[in-house]
């Protein structure tokens, strides 16, 4: 004999359906935002159809190289996008100090990040001598996903002709 499900049982089933639907919607929106923001960020380096939105300049004063970089980002996703750059002291790396810029970009908004870095122990005739200058680039799709990329910027401190 089939018994009718109790009110509490139906409520639990309803909650289960709501949780599943909520998960599906959130995952779909995160996937869309991650794709759109990835295309946007890769576009600042000239990949894809977007025009580059990054400019860098290096000025030498004795054995110190001063790097300034402007990065323009547009948030094409559905969640706020947080972006920051910070210097990292890695073993064998050159001594570098940064202004550690950080910004949070709302949906459909554009922001420009001004990154300044002083690198000491650089010889303009020989560059970094093969030593890296590591920085951490943090990109966060608030509040769900955060990606940190550690990259070497020694290519910006080249040999002065």
């Amino acid at each position: 004999m089939k018994t009718e499900q109790s009110t509490a049982g139906r409520s639990l089933r309803g909650v289960s359906i709501v949780i599943t639907l909520l998960s599906v919607v959130i995952f779909a929106t995160i996937a869309y935002s991650a794709y759109e923001d990835s295309v946007g960020i890769l576009g600042i380096f000239g990949q894809g159809s977007s025009t580059p939105a990054i400019s860098a300049k290096t000025v030498y004063q004795g054995s110190t190289a001063m790097v300034s970089m402007n990065i323009t980002l547009h948030n094409n996703g559905l969640y706020p996008l947080a972006f920051s750059i910070s210097c990292v002291r890695s073993p064998g790396a050159l001594n570098a100090t940064c202004n550690n810029p950080a910004t949070s970009i709302a949906m459909s908004q554009t922001a420009t990040v001004h990154f300044l870095m002083n690198v000491t122990g650089v010889a303009p005739q020989s560059g970094t001598g093969g030593r890296p200058i590591d920085v951490d680039v943090n990109v966060t799709l608030n509040p769900f996903v955060s990606l940190k990329v550690t990259t070497d910027l020694s290519g910006l401190v080249g040999v002065v002709p």
Partner: peptide
């Protein structure tokens, strides 16, 4: 390059249906 991906809130959302079903 070194990549570090952190997605604890997303992981909780991923586990929530299984945990709720285990309790339900």
């Amino acid at each position: 390059l070194k990549f570090a991906l952190s997605f604890q809130p997303l992981l909780f959302l991923l586990m929530l249906p299984s945990l709720f079903s285990a309790f339900k």
